[in-house]
């Protein structure tokens, strides 16, 4: 009797588990979808990030005199500085949108796991960042007659963006709740993502200069470790960021 009870209970809990997984994913997807729909209508986030990114490249062009030899050395650095600056712009905007007219409070009222909200925001931020990068890379290739569409480079842009956006989403959700707001985000974010940044520049330069994989792997590993550690920690502590 007790045995069969236990069996039923176990089966029920397993059933519940099977049910909760899709609910979680559906929550994440709902938040991503909301952000994409809002962006599709306003187009203010991606367009401002994109224009800003192109401007940064133009400023670099004249600041560093990107002739053929200089370009060979600094292209990866220029790219990552551009992504980092454009990224903070997008992260700030994306969180300011939530703070505006209490959208975030509405999200938090929903009876869902808070980490799903974080993942949803992080994924949509990642999506915006990747779109900007997907446009900047060919534009840069075109402007400087250099082929940046190398599979290795695309992989590192993807991996680097994951880490950057994860930490960025967490910190921007903190920064938006302070008095200084958007000014604070780069000050909080850049010292934390510095190791990721160093490694990403190194790996990108390695691929562009055709270095041996054995020289690239240590840096690539560093990026992967960074992504894993900070994704885990960000998901764990997000609850405390939005707690009231």
């Amino acid at each position: 009797m007790t045995n069969s009870d236990a069996n039923i209970a176990e089966r029920a809990s397993r059933k519940a588990q099977r049910k909760t997984t899709p609910v979680y994913l559906r929550t994440v997807w709902a938040i991503v979808w909301k952000d994409l729909a809002a962006e599709l209508r306003s187009r203010e986030l991606i367009s401002s990030m994109l224009v800003f990114a192109i401007l940064v490249i133009f400023i670099f062009n004249f600041a560093l005199e990107l002739d053929a030899r200089a370009r060979f050395n600094v292209t990866s650095g220029v790219l990552w500085v551009t992504f980092a600056f454009a990224g903070t712009l997008g992260l700030n905007r994306s969180m300011a949108m939530e703070k505006d007219r209490g959208c975030l409070d509405g999200l938090l009222l929903a009876p869902v796991d808070r980490s799903a909200i974080f993942l949803g925001k992080a994924l949509s931020n990642l999506f915006f960042m990747l779109i900007v990068e997907a446009i900047v890379l060919p534009v840069y290739s075109l402007l400087y007659n250099i082929n940046l569409l190398h599979p290795g480079l695309i992989a590192v842009v993807l991996l680097g963006s994951v880490g950057y956006v994860t930490v960025g989403t967490l910190l921007s959700s903190m920064a938006v709740q302070t008095r200084t707001r958007d000014v604070l985000l780069p000050i909080l974010l850049f010292p934390i993502v510095l190791p990721l940044f160093i490694a990403a520049v190194k790996v990108s330069a390695g691929f562009l200069q055709g270095l041996d994989m054995s020289e690239i792997w240590p840096w690539l590993n560093l990026i992967i470790v960074f992504d894993l550690i900070f994704s885990a920690v960000a998901i764990m502590v997000f609850d405390y960021v939005v707690e009231e």
Binding site: V167, L170, T178, P195, L222, V225, V233, V237, V241
Partner: peptide, 19 residues
């Protein structure tokens, strides 16, 4: 927020040293 940032910073510093 202070607690969270102290933890994040402490995790990031060894990686900076390594890189």
């Amino acid at each position: 927020f202070g607690a969270i940032y102290a933890i994040l910073g402490f995790l990031s510093v060894p990686l900076t040293f390594l890189s």
